[in-house]
Design a protein around this nucleic acid. Structure first.
Lengths: 201, 201
DNA sequence: CTTGCATTTTACCGAACGGTCAACTAGCAT
DNA sequence: ATGCTAGTTGACCGTTCGGTAAAATGCAAG
């Protein structure tokens, strides 16, 4: 089982950077198998379909983030609004380091996949939506604490959290269009100016 | 030349909704030719490559917007900040009507293509970037007029314009993940809360 | 009537696509 | 030693991919 798991994770490891740097449709299973040093028959022993592979890839990216930058950023020890600064910083430095290594801004894999596949595959769309929903919750909790501590005036934490997530994705999209992570540095901090007021009581 | 032009524009007309509703890689030239009632050889008489077709499609979408909603929204007769409201409204109603007809939120073709191809094709990326740059200019002029008329306090119009554009794209992305244009209605108006201050006199 | 050009048709190219299958290997428990 | 199973192999499926080339049209000017 150890070796078997190794094959499976080698496949995922080969698929991750490819899906991130190109697109779902543009990366073939053949190429992933070559990258992983695995035969196509083996691939289909572990993954019923290409979609199942990309789901595993999404999970790995999500875990990586949740246990990495996101865990650091949303540290309860930090003042609430500083956590948001931290997250923006982390996104900036991550994209920047990827560009240094890879030569290109790759952007957010979740955003990339969302725009590519969500009209064509509701299961993938649901999976990606779940990740955005979790991210939104992090923002929301943070905003609620910022309100509770009097750091910011009361607001609609749920909607503002969603707005902030949208802004982050949008900035990454625009930065990718410019192939320049510095846009994250310039535009990122403005995320804290976003506000949606509480409506009706 | 009339009939010839007709063939060319039939090809573009067949390609537009397909690229918009799916993706660049997922739409084949064969299918576009069938949709246009044209032979593949004819296609390559008018377009040297698939990339040239999608460039023409981008141009048509851009013109459509520039002469439609965008022209209406950025009407100099409107108070500056109301133009931004108008644009958000237009995006909302457009996405909503598409969903009613098509059954799905398709989002912004420029954002869709940007995330799909901009790591793989610098010519397409440049084309899409040019469109975003034009859009940013519209926002910037509007903000400058809002500042000049005293509607809003002074700010960095260029950066705030870029932030607003990013936010709009991000909201559309998130709405597409939810397949629900109503998110545009809820989050859209907060675009006016975005502010990036002037740095260093 | 003919030359020339733009357009269209049809057949075709090699490569890649996602996915399947049967045969084979290795390890382990009975 | 035997049988079972997880894993692996490599050949193969039909289809589609973007793109090409040559021959056939239609049409307009000389």
């Amino acid at each position: 089982m150890n070796i078997a798991t190794d094959t499976r994770s080698r496949i995922i490891a080969a698929a991750k950077p490819r899906f991130h740097s190109r697109s779902y449709a543009n990366v073939g299973i053949q190429e992933i198998c070559e990258g992983a040093g695995v035969q196509k028959g083996s691939f289909y022993h572990f993954f019923p379909s290409k979609r199942d592979l990309v789901m595993a890839v999404i999970d790995e990216f999500a875990d990586e983030w949740a246990n990495g930058f996101v865990a650091e950023a949303f540290d309860p020890a930090l003042p609430p609004m500083e956590r948001i600064d931290y997250l923006i910083d982390a996104a900036y430095f991550w994209q920047k380091s990827i560009k240094q290594v890879h030569g290109r801004m790759l952007g957010c894999i979740f955003g990339n996949l969302t725009l590519e596949v969500s009209t064509q595959d509701d299961i993938l769309r649901a999976k990606l939506l779940a990740i955005f929903t979790r991210a939104k919750s992090r923002f929301k909790e943070t905003l609620e604490q910022a309100v509770a501590t009097g750091t910011i005036p009361p607001l609609d934490a749920g909607l503002t959290a969603e707005a902030m997530l949208a802004y982050l994705e949008g900035v990454i999209l625009l930065a990718k269009a410019q192939n320049d992570p510095e846009l994250l540095y310039r535009l990122g901090p403005a995320i804290k100016t976003l506000r949606i007021e509480l409506s009706g009581g």
